[in-house]
């Protein structure tokens, strides 16, 4: 049911996601620096980088087509839509009547296709290399992500994300082995999708191992800012989706702002914890060879399928 307060909440949630996303990236960087015994950069560094890039003049390659120019906007739009679909604070979001979990995966795929096309548009070797690798990772990660979502859908008998989260939050505390497996598979998929170690190194430049950065090499100025912001937003959305699917406790299901405040506190706590966990994973593992990535994501896929099968065997009365 679409109410005015629902729409207000929806926009509040979206605004929050867009504004807080760089903070999460900054927090992960700070945690990573602490764990690696380096002196940490200020947690607000990503905002400063964005501000700097927005004030700079974008430089375009001589043979850049219009596709290259609109891709940052499409990418940012896709990520905003994705952030709106995932219930972070409240589960009565009006947009959920229009888009479910499968649509969410589709939105991510759309963003990925445009990014790869734009990277190949200029015709440099690095862009093409990055685009090809990104498509390989994407085509391996997507089925695993879908099956994780299917497992949650089977448990709650719906594919709408907010209904899934609502049911999970209201459930009695029952041990679901399938959810544990799906959680591990989801973590592996998120590492690959967000260009994190062990699949990709977000801090690398001009190395033969890079995937995500290789696609951004030709961008500058406000275009680059939007691409970077979209990457932060993607990390934020993935983290929120993981939180919503596997630890949804504290999310509000009414229209009251007090519930939203509680949910906000819970979310901030969970995101801080999740960010430091991500930093821990990144510190403890080494970047693997690109040809190991299929095996890594294959394991995620197997885990997701096992989760679904175990749910069908053990948890259906």
């Amino acid at each position: 049911m679409t109410t005015l307060s629902g729409i207000v909440l929806q926009f509040f949630e979206l605004l929050l996601a867009v504004l807080v996303a760089p903070l999460l990236t900054g927090w992960v960087n700070v945690c990573r620096a602490w764990m690696q015994n380096r002196s940490a950069p200020p947690v607000l560094t990503p905002y400063r980088v964005l501000l700097k890039l927005f004030t700079k003049e974008p430089v375009l390659a001589y043979n850049a087509s219009s596709l290259f120019r609109i891709t940052p906007y499409i990418l940012f739009g896709c990520m905003c839509l994705a952030a709106a679909i995932v219930p972070t604070l409240n589960i009565n979001l009006p947009i959920n009547a229009a888009a479910d979990a499968i649509a969410l995966v589709g939105v991510f795929a759309l963003a990925r296709v445009f990014m790869a096309l734009a990277a190949m548009d200029i015709g440099t070797a690095f862009g093409t290399l990055g685009a090809r690798r990104e498509m390989m990772i994407g085509f391996l990660a997507e089925p695993a992500l879908l099956i994780v979502l299917f497992t949650s859908s089977l448990i709650s008998n719906t594919t709408s994300l907010s209904s899934i989260v609502g049911q999970m939050a209201r459930m009695d505390l029952v041990i679901y082995p399938s959810l544990a497996f799906a959680g591990v598979a989801y973590t592996m998929v998120s590492l690959a999708e967000n260009a994190r170690i062990p699949v990709d190194n977000p801090a690398t430049h001009l190395e033969l191992t890079m995937i995500h950065e290789a696609m951004l090499l030709e961008y500058s100025g406000r275009h680059l800012a939007l691409m970077e912001w979209a990457a932060s937003l993607k990390l934020f959305t993935y983290s929120c989706m993981g939180i919503a699917l596997f630890v949804p406790f504290g999310i509000s299901d009414g229209d009251s702002w007090a519930g939203v405040l509680v949910a906000l506190t819970a979310l901030a706590f969970k995101l801080a914890l999740g960010g430091s966990l991500l930093a821990l994973i990144e510190t403890m593992s080494a970047k693997m060879r690109i040809f190991r990535a299929p095996e890594f994501l294959g394991t995620a896929f197997i885990l997701a399928v096992l989760a679904m099968l175990i749910h069908l065997l053990l948890e259906t009365p």
Partner: peptide, 26 residues
């Protein structure tokens, strides 16, 4: 029927251990 709908804690734990055993087999 009720026992099926809400399995007891030991039975849940056995299921969990069984799932982990399958994982180790893989």
């Amino acid at each position: 029927t009720q026992a099926l709908l809400a399995p007891s804690l030991p039975s849940q734990l056995i299921n969990l251990l069984a799932a982990v055993m399958l994982l180790i087999a893989f």
